[in-house]
Measured scan of single mutants.
Amino acid sequence: EPLWIRPDAPSRCTWQLGRPASESPHHHTAPAKSPKILPDILKKIGDTPMVRINKIGKKFGLKCELLAKCEFFNAGGSVKDRISLRMIEDAERDGTLKPGDTIIEPTSGNTGIGLALAAAVRGYRCIIVMPEKMSSEKVDVLRALGAEIVRTPTNARFDSPESHVGVAWRLKNEIPNSHILDQYRNASNPLAHYDTTADEILQQCDGKLDMLVASVGTGGTITGIARKLKEKCPGCRIIGVDPEGSILAEPEELNQTEQTTYEVEGIGYDFIPTVLDRTVVDKWFKSNDEEAFTFARMLIAQEGLLCGGSAGSTVAVAVKAAQELQEGQRCVVILPDSVRNYMTKFLSDRWMLQKGFLKEEDLTEKKPWWWHLRVQELGLSAPLTVLPTITCGHTIEILREKGFDQAPVVDEAGVILGMVTLGNMLSSLLAGKVQPSDQVGKVIYKQFKQIRLTDTLGRLSHILEMDHFALVVHEQIQYHSTGKSSQRQMVFGVVTAIDLLNFVAAQERDQK
Rank of each mutant, 00 (worst) to 15 (best):
G240R: 02
V415I: 14
I272C: 08
K449Q: 11
A292Y: 04
P383N: 05
L347E: 01
A321T: 11
L399G: 03
E290C: 11
F448S: 13
E397P: 03
G493C: 14
Q447W: 10
W369C: 08
R488Y: 13
E397I: 09
P336M: 01
G268R: 00
S246R: 02
V440M: 15
N502Q: 14
V241K: 01
S485L: 13
K512R: 14
E361Q: 12
R452D: 10
G268I: 02
M298F: 07
I238H: 01
R509M: 15
V504N: 12
V409H: 00
V472T: 13
I498N: 09
R374Y: 03
I267S: 02
G312S: 00
A321R: 09
F492P: 14
F271L: 04
Q511Y: 11
T364G: 11
A506G: 15
F357N: 05
S338D: 08
M343Q: 01
S481R: 14
G268M: 00
V473F: 15
I398C: 03
D362N: 06
V315F: 09
V332W: 00
L430C: 08
L248E: 00
H480G: 05
S428V: 15
V375W: 07
V241W: 00
F448D: 03
M419E: 05
M425S: 03
L299V: 11
T274H: 02
Q439M: 07
E291D: 12
S437I: 13
G483H: 08
Y269M: 01
Q511V: 11
L417R: 12
S427H: 08
Q354G: 05
V332L: 14
G312V: 00
D242P: 01
P388Q: 13
S287H: 07
T421F: 03
L471H: 08
F503K: 03
E360F: 12
Q476G: 10
F346T: 02
V415K: 05
K449T: 03
Q489H: 15
T385E: 08
I463K: 13
S348R: 11
A311Y: 04
A292F: 02
K355R: 14
A505S: 14
V333D: 06
P251D: 02
D337M: 01
T314F: 07
S348N: 13
R330W: 03
L464H: 03
R488D: 05
N255P: 05
L460N: 01
E508A: 10
A413L: 15
P273H: 00
V409Q: 09
D411Q: 03
A311L: 07
Q478Y: 12
R330C: 15
V504C: 08
Q489E: 12
Q450N: 12
A382R: 11
H480S: 11
I444Q: 14
I300A: 02
G432W: 06
T294Q: 12
E401C: 15
A506N: 10
L460M: 12
V317P: 09
G309A: 04
W351Q: 00
L457C: 07
H462D: 11
V264S: 00
E244Q: 10
M352F: 02
S461F: 15
E253A: 11
W284C: 00
A322R: 02
L380K: 11
K345M: 03
L422N: 09
I238A: 02
R374Q: 04
P436C: 14
A497P: 02
D467T: 05
G493R: 09
Q489L: 13
E327D: 11
P383G: 06
I444T: 11
T389V: 15
C392I: 15
E250H: 10
Q376A: 04
C392G: 06
G418M: 04
V241F: 03
S481H: 13
D242I: 00
E327C: 15
A505H: 03
L373E: 15
D270F: 00
D510P: 12
L417W: 09
L335R: 00
V332F: 02
D411W: 12
A321K: 05
G240L: 04
A296E: 05
T260W: 15
S381H: 13
T364P: 10
A506T: 15
V491D: 02
D438E: 15
V280R: 11
E327S: 09
Q511H: 13
F492K: 12
T261A: 03
L335G: 01
V375Q: 06
D362C: 03
R452T: 05
K484Q: 12
D405N: 06
S427Y: 14
K512F: 10
T395K: 10
E508M: 04
F469A: 15
A316F: 12
P368Q: 06
V491T: 04
F503H: 12
E327G: 15
G328V: 08
A431S: 06
T257K: 10
A413R: 14
L430S: 14
R340C: 01
A318K: 02
Q487Y: 11
P336A: 04
I498L: 15
L248I: 07
G483T: 15
E324A: 10
K320W: 03
E397F: 14
D277M: 01
K286T: 02
L373F: 14
C331D: 00
V440D: 08
I390F: 02
G441K: 11
L353V: 15
T456G: 14
V315H: 05
W371F: 10
Q489S: 13
Q447M: 12
S287T: 11
S428L: 12
L387M: 14
A407H: 05
E324W: 08
L471S: 10
Q511W: 11
C331K: 01
F285H: 11
S246W: 00
M343E: 04
E465T: 03
A470K: 06
V434H: 10
Y262R: 02
T456Y: 13
D277A: 03
E361A: 06
E465A: 12
I272Q: 07
R459Y: 10
Q489V: 15
G493P: 13
L399R: 03
E327W: 03
T482C: 11
M343D: 03
R509A: 12
F285I: 13
A470C: 05
D282C: 14
G268E: 00
E263K: 13
I444W: 15
T454D: 05
R278P: 04
V332H: 02
S437H: 12
G245S: 03
H468W: 04
N424C: 10
L335Y: 06
W369M: 12
T344G: 12
L464F: 11
W284T: 01
N288H: 06
N424E: 13
G414V: 13
V494C: 11
A506I: 10
V332M: 12
C331W: 02
I444N: 14
A296T: 07
D277W: 06
I463Y: 14
E252F: 06
I390L: 14
D242H: 01
L453N: 12
I272N: 03
L430F: 13
L460H: 01
T482F: 15
S338W: 06
L417H: 15
G379K: 12
I239G: 06
G328K: 05
N341E: 02
R297Y: 00
T456Q: 04
L429V: 13
I272G: 05
P436A: 12
N255S: 04
I390G: 15
T482S: 15
L358M: 12
T344S: 04
Q256D: 08
F492N: 12
D277S: 03
H480Q: 14
W284N: 00
R459P: 12
T454P: 12
T454K: 11
G418I: 02
I239T: 08
L387C: 10
D242T: 05
F346S: 04
G328I: 08
K512N: 13
Y342A: 02
K446G: 07
A407Q: 11
A301M: 14
G393Y: 04
L358G: 05
Q476R: 09
V472E: 14
L305G: 01
L380V: 15
V280P: 09
D499E: 07
S485T: 05
S338G: 10
L276V: 08
I334C: 06
G240H: 00
L500E: 03
S313V: 08
C331H: 00
Q406V: 02
I390T: 13
L325M: 09
T421Q: 15
I239H: 01
A311H: 06
